[in-house]
Amino acid sequence: MLTHVLRDSPADRGTVERQVLQLVNPDAREALNLLDGIEQLNAKLDEMAGKSKEDLAQWGITEARGKLAQAGKKLTELIEQSQKAGRSTTTLDEVIGRYQAVRTRVLVEALDLPPTVDPTASGM
């Protein structure tokens, strides 16, 4: 409700939501910041449609794998912090769902691996 009151236009929703979350649930705000990076990787994968398997694999190994591994580790830490503090994990759960979807997409489309690969074994 507060996010609707504090914004002037629908375009301001994301900014206002993040500012409110900083006060109410800083872990959720950090998760939304991680989501930006996750979505950038997803957009980059879209841009690479039609590229060779070698180009996709190179990008998946050199760029996507490390960034997704860092995001996954941080999201795990954030959810643990939120649970310990008794804060809502709804936003975190949504970001984790999106992270998993993008991670699976990178595994399948860029690295030509099955989506069920153990993330600890693959470095993701």
Rank of each mutant, 00 (worst) to 15 (best):
L92A: 00
L41S: 04
P115K: 11
T89S: 03
T120L: 09
L56W: 00
T91D: 05
S9Y: 15
D36M: 11
V106T: 08
A110N: 05
G72F: 07
T76S: 13
L41P: 01
E77C: 07
K84W: 02
T89M: 01
V106Q: 01
D8A: 15
K53W: 03
S82M: 02
T3C: 09
L35T: 04
L45Q: 14
L6V: 10
Q83P: 00
T89N: 03
T116N: 11
E109V: 09
A28M: 10
E63Y: 04
I38E: 02
G60C: 03
K73P: 01
L107I: 10
G86V: 06
S122T: 09
A101Y: 02
T62E: 06
S82E: 04
D8C: 15
D112E: 14
M1L: 11
E109T: 12
T15L: 15
G97C: 04
A110M: 10
T15S: 14
V24F: 07
A31L: 14
L6N: 07
L45M: 11
R98W: 01
D55I: 03
N25H: 13
T116P: 00
R13G: 07
T62P: 02
R29S: 12
D27V: 07
R29M: 14
P119H: 05
L92Q: 02
T76N: 11
V102F: 01
R87H: 07
G97E: 03
G14K: 15
L92W: 02
L2Y: 05
E17H: 07
D27H: 15
A31C: 14
L32N: 12
Q22S: 14
A64E: 05
L107A: 10
N33Q: 15
R18W: 02
V5F: 05
V16F: 10
K44D: 10
L45N: 08
